[in-house]
């Protein structure tokens, strides 16, 4: 980018040259070029900047304003300052929602990463029909969450679902899945990991294919076995992709909603109530937009801090080739 900037500044295009010949002086020419350059950048940014401004940045600050008020979405707002925040911090339901969200991430992240890595490794080797397999694993990623959630609800139905039927065949009494508070979160984790497996696979597959073959050849000559190569070459060389997957999964994990809404609605007995579901309920069921906005901001700050920690921590384990 810097090189490009320099070259542009030093050798302006034909239009700028014409302008210089007509323009009153050297100073004017520099400003004109710079302005034109800025306008060019702006023109390219506008298609994404405008929606970002109106649908993300303005609503974010609007939500902050709402979070300082008591508001039922319908009537007038009532200023309450930071009351919504202090109420949320001491509210057991909010604490529960954060704990359930962390439970989700702790279960989901290892499952989706290890599963995605295993499939990526398998599909990186020269096996028959691997393009088809890659497509098949990616299919759930592009499927609507509502569809996936309903299918998993059927699969995991405690009395008529195929999963418990299969477990019954091997003599295991299947759990109550989404009807049981102890199993509702594992049900959601299972469905989520299944759906996102293909996404993680694709990222890791791209990373795997960027690893030079000669590293493996050299290691083999030195007598490194299969596992040795995995841990000493593949995983370190894959760390930028891993970092990307982890950061993205964490950010998305904290915002888990669709599958919870469609599979359990946060139940039974609030056992799968996550933060975004709580925000939804507060706003659209209970008419507490102020509290919901405050909770949105708490979630935003929480994700920001976690992501900053990760970005700092990456120096220790991420190797950029």
């Amino acid at each position: 980018m810097t090189a490009l900037q320099n070259s542009r500044a030093e050798s302006p295009g034909p239009t700028a040259t014409t302008k210089r010949n007509q323009g009153p002086g050297l100073r004017r020419k520099a400003t004109g070029t710079r302005l034109k350059y800025a306008l060019t950048i702006a023109a390219f940014l506008i298609p994404s900047a405008v929606p970002l401004l109106f649908f993300t940045i303005i609503p974010m600050f609007a939500a902050f304003w709402i979070s300082l008020n008591q508001w039922n979405l319908v009537g007038p707002m009532k200023w309450v300052g930071l009351d919504n925040y202090s109420k949320l911090v001491s509210d057991p339901d909010t604490q529960g929602a954060f704990l359930h969200t962390i439970y989700y991430i702790v279960g989901y992240l290892p499952l989706v990463y290890v599963g995605g890595l295993a499939i990526a490794l398998a599909l990186n080797s020269r096996i028959k029909g691997r393009s088809l397999m890659r497509g098949l694993y990616f299919l759930p990623v592009v499927t609507s969450w509502i569809v996936v959630a309903l299918v998993w609800r059927w699969l995991l139905n405690p009395s008529t679902g195929i999963v418990n039927w299969l477990l019954g065949l091997i003599g295991v009494a299947g759990p109550g899945w989404w009807t049981d508070p102890a199993w509702s979160m594992p049900s959601i984790i299972l469905a989520s990991a299944w759906k996102d497996l293909g996404f993680v696979m694709v990222i890791l597959l791209a990373g795997l294919q960027a690893i030079p073959e000669d590293l493996y050849e050299a290691a083999t000559v030195d007598g490194a076995g299969r596992w040795r190569r995995l841990f000493s070459i593949t995983l370190p060389m894959l760390s930028p992709s891993t970092f990307f997957v982890v950061v993205l999964s964490l950010i998305n994990g904290f915002q888990v909603f669709d599958q919870v809404y469609a599979m359990t609605g946060g139940g039974p007995n609030n056992s799968s109530q996550v933060v975004v579901q709580q925000i939804y309920d507060l706003t659209f069921r209970y008419g507490k937009a102020g509290e919901a906005s405050a909770l949105s901001w708490l979630l935003f700050l929480f994700i920001l801090v976690i992501t900053l920690i990760q970005v700092r921590g990456q120096k220790k384990w991420v190797h950029y080739a």
Partner: peptide, 14 residues
């Protein structure tokens, strides 16, 4: 994997 819920909420509030 999507951020729709928050975006939808944000849009509604906007």
């Amino acid at each position: 994997m999507n951020k729709k819920p928050l975006a939808v909420l944000g849009a509604a509030l906007a």
